[in-house]
Each structure stands twice: as C-alpha cells, then as structure tokens.
Amino acid sequence: MTMKNNEPIRKSELQEESLFEKAVGRRSFLQYAGASAAGIALVAAGCKKDRGYPDMNTGVTLDFKDDFGVLNYAYALEQLEAAFYVKVASAPPASFTAAQKAYFQDIQFHEIAHREFFKAALGTAAIGSLEVNFDSIDFTSASSVLGTAMAFEDLGVSAYNGAGPRIKSATYLLLAGKIVSVEARHAAYVRDLISNGSFADLNSLAPLGANNAGGLDAALTPDKVLATAGKYIKTKINVINL
C-alpha cells in the first residue's frame, strides 16, 4: 500500500505513539515507568501481593509504613557498625598507629552512641538486637579492617541520604542529618587512610548512587542497602511497606 511504502518512518512514529497512548494508557504508563525507574514500588508490591507478609516469628521486621520503620532501619545499620568497631577497637590490627587506634576508638564511641540513641528514642517500637556475621573480615589485617570500615561508612551515608526523603517528621529528619554528616566524616577519614585524597571520590561511589558531575554523594534505597549489609547480618530482616 502507498502509505506503507511511502511513509515508513512516519508509520513507525505513529505506532510508537499508539503504544504509548493506548496500549499502556497514560496514567498506568506513569505508574509502570515510575515503579521501574525508582525500583521501589515493584518491590513493595512484591512483598505484599506475591509472597504475602513475611513470617514475623523469625528475625526482625522493618515496617516502612511510617517514620519508626526508617528509624529502625537506621538502628539496624548502627547496630552493625557499632559491633564492627567494638571488635576493632578491642583488638586493632598490629600495624595500626597510635593515632589510628585512638580514632577508631572514637568512631566506636560514636557508633555506640548512635545505636543506643535509636534504641532509647524508639523505646518499645525498637527492633531487637541483630546477630552479626563477620566471618569474612580478618580483624588482624589492617587492609581488611580499613576496607570493611570504608564499605560500612559509605553504605551508611548512602542509606541515610536515600532514606531522608522517606522521613515525614522534620525532627527525625534533622536527627538523621546530625548523624549522617558524622558518618561522612568517618568515611572520608577511612578513605584517606586507604588512599590519601579519596575522601570524596564520587566516581568510585557511583555504584552507591553518587554522581560526580553533580557533586552528589551516595544515596541508595533501603532494599539495596540491606542487600549489601545482609552479608554481615545473621538475623533475618523482613522488610514490608517499602
């Protein structure tokens, strides 16, 4: 037919338009695209509809329906960090300098403070204590300890940054902000110990959501953070309403 032969390009544009307009529908397209772009809604739907509610009898549950869920998420991560630094500070790698030992002890106190703060602030809403799994860490090796510290600090920064917009209360948002900048200071310090000048190497942080062109630090959604942190946590963490 004439149309087919003479206007193939136009036809294909129309087909594309038609798919966009009719087959999916404007509003459902927005929802579908929004879900896949943000990677959040599909996960949440998967939790609720496909698998049903997780078994509450095992592990802890982070219910992201409200700010308590976000605070418990932070509490879980602070438990992990504190457990790590308690172990490092109690028996630092032999090659650590006196200054490094002192700063790792400082960081230990900071992380304990964060952990205990969340526990106290959450009160009866707090999740239980997590059991950690540090089998993959060689606590006698400076490179293993520093590498793990960097991973935890950068992940912590990405977690707080990614969770910030989920917080509804200005008070809680500010408290998270008071903590995340301390984590970022830790991260920069540890990074500089590993490689001086890498304190804010945003290209290397791109897998955690950083954007060097915008001068933007890491930010990850809780599902991604927990997938990474899970390697170090024995306790099962159930996530709902994400």
Partner: peptide
C-alpha cells in the same frame, strides 16, 4: 530537592573531614 540537598550535605562533610 531534599534528596539532592542531602547528597550535597554529606559531600561537604567529607570535605570538612579532609
């Protein structure tokens, strides 16, 4: 906007540390 501001905020903290 909040997301972006938080990501700038922690970069400034890394600068301060260094």
């Amino acid at each position: 906007v909040l997301q972006t501001a938080l990501q700038i905020h922690s970069v400034e903290a890394r600068h301060a540390s260094h």
